[in-house]
Every structure is written in structure tokens, then in C-alpha cells.
Amino acid sequence: MTAELKLGIHVGYWQRDPEDHTETVLAAERLGYDSVFTAEAYGSDAFTPLTWYAARTSRIGLGTAVVQMSARTPAATAMHALTLDALSGGRVALGLGASGPQVVEGWYGVPFPKPLARTREYFDILRKVWRRAEPVTNDGPHHPLPYPGGTGLGKPLKSIVHPVRPEIPLYLGAEGPKNVALAAEIAQGWLPMFIDPAQVDTVYGESLAGRPDGFEIAATVTTIVTDDLPAALEFAKIPLAFYIGGMGAKDRNFHLDLIGRLGYGEQAARVQELFLSGRRDEAIRAVPDELADSISLLGPIGRIKERLQLWRDSPVTTLLLGGVKDEPTLRALRDLVRG
């Protein structure tokens, strides 16, 4: 059980020219929300919009959920994070994820071997860059420094910038049991996706058993305050259908596997089948209402108040509300969580 839930907003991917969440972010800061998080997949990046919001705020925490590790070398990611952390006065929490082979090899053009070992190596290099204890070297096979081929002239270097903090909090986006266990071992927090608060201990209890005191679990939760619960459920099913059906190869989709562990394996397979055959509207309708409801906060404010207890009773420490844009709704949800 979490003594007091922290509260943030997740503004997702930046999608198009008019999409600027500045007013929402400013409202969240005025209302005392703890953080704002951005994301990336294979379009916009996570750092640019986060910097945009950082420049317009002064207090709210700044997070990524997630930056894709294969998009940048560890040194490049460390540079992004230390720069934004300095410019924002030490407000950054860096959330990273391994993504999957479809995106990593198809979009970034790099191999997808041994994601657990790559993640461990990546985190180690980030911390070496920020600590500046010595020139950065790495003997691992995934991100060797200096590079062992090429001209042979590479040399270990230290950042020419002194970070404002030698330790920037690192969160790991993870779904599989081994990856969640890795988060509990090497990160300061875990960024779960499609999490049912009533099943955290059942599905992830063993993986989280070794987490240290103060370990953050920041869950993104689709949140829709409305009297039209069926319409809210329909909306909440859209990202589920997309991730189950389209964010992964047919025979290797980590999101599909997760939904199976939540108890909806057969239904998830049907969603994937419909999505991949081009019948996307049918795929959305095939997502079970119970699944969409269990991982979201949907309906009238009174219903959301009741369902918040499930999150309070879980190990989740932060709710990252997704889909909420207007200040009155942000205020009402704040009062529910902190009242």
C-alpha cells in the first residue's frame, strides 16, 4: 500500500503542429502536480517537447516515459539529460526503455540482442558520464568505449560540462518479469504500462521483491471524467488495440504477452488478428471492457473516487494521468487524490 500517491500528467507523443500542451502543463504546475512526462516511438522525440515545457515552468518535475535506448548512444542520452537537468534546475527524471525488435531494427537500424544486458550496460555508462569520476570507458560488448574498431584513435573522455547533479534519477520502462526485476535492481523507478493495480502483486510480486526503499512505480493511467462510461471505455480501448495489434511483430509482441499475463490471452490474440488484417475498428471493439476499465480511471467523478482505492492499495507510488487537458478536471482529480 502507498501512503500517499504522487500525481503527474503524461502528455504522450507530440503528434502534430498544433499539439502544444503548455497550458495543461502550466495548469498542472499551478495545482501542485508533481511531474509531467513525455514519450517517443518512431515520430517525434521525447526531449524536445519536454524542454519546451521546462522553459515555461519553474517547479514541476520533468520526466520521460520513455526515451528509447536504441535511438541514441548512451553518451548522447546522457548529454541530453544533463543539459536539460541543468537548464531546468535539476528537475529531470530519465525514463528509458528497450522497445522491441520491430522498432529497434526496423526504425533505428540497430540490432536487438540481449536487451537485459544492453540495458544494464547503458545505465552504467549514463552514470559514469554524470559522475565525472574518470574518463568514461566500457568493456561491455554492446556499447564499448572507446570504440574498438575504426581508426584506433578513440580515447576515453570526460564530459566537458559538470552536471548540476551527479545522479539523475533513472527509471526503466519494463513489461516482462525479468525486465521488471532488472528495474528493481538497477533503477530508481519503474514505468509500467497497462497495469492493473489489483494484479500488481500477483503479476509482478516476485520481480519487485528486491526493490529498495524509496523505489518509484510511476504508472500511466488513461483518465476520462465523463458521465458516458461506454464512450470512455471505447476511447480507452484504442491504445490497447494499437499496442496489442501493431506495436510488435506477430510472433514477438511484448504488449500482447503482458495482456496474457493479466488474464486476457485469448482475447488479446483475437485483437491482434483483427488489427493485423486491417480490421482496426473491430480490433478496438474486441478489447474486453473489463481490461480497459481495470487499467484506467473512467466515468463520473464519484466512480473514479471509488476506483482510486485500488491504486492506493497497490505498490504504485505515482499516478501519471493520461488524456486530461483542462484545468477544472485536473483540479477535481487532484482533490480526489490528495483529499
Rank of each mutant, 00 (worst) to 15 (best):
F112Y: 15
D139V: 10
M79V: 06
P101F: 06
A117D: 13
F123K: 00
L84S: 02
W107C: 06
H80N: 14
R165L: 00
F112N: 06
E167F: 10
G100K: 01
M79S: 08
R165H: 13
S159C: 09
G109A: 05
H162P: 04
G140L: 10
W130L: 03
T151G: 08
I125F: 00
T151W: 07
L94F: 03
S88G: 05
Q102V: 11
T83P: 00
L82F: 03
F112D: 04
K155W: 11
Y122Q: 03
N138T: 05
H162V: 15
G100H: 15
H142E: 04
D85T: 04
P115V: 08
P113T: 11
I160E: 12
K114R: 14
E167S: 13
L84T: 01
P111G: 05
V129A: 04
D85Y: 05
L157W: 11
G90S: 02
A98W: 05
I168M: 01
H143M: 03
S159Q: 07
S159N: 10
A86Q: 11
P169I: 02
V92Y: 03
L153T: 15
G150I: 07
L96V: 13
P148G: 02
A133R: 15
L157T: 13
V129G: 01
H142W: 14
R91K: 07
T77W: 00
L84G: 00
G89P: 11
T83N: 08
H80I: 01
V104M: 05
G100P: 00
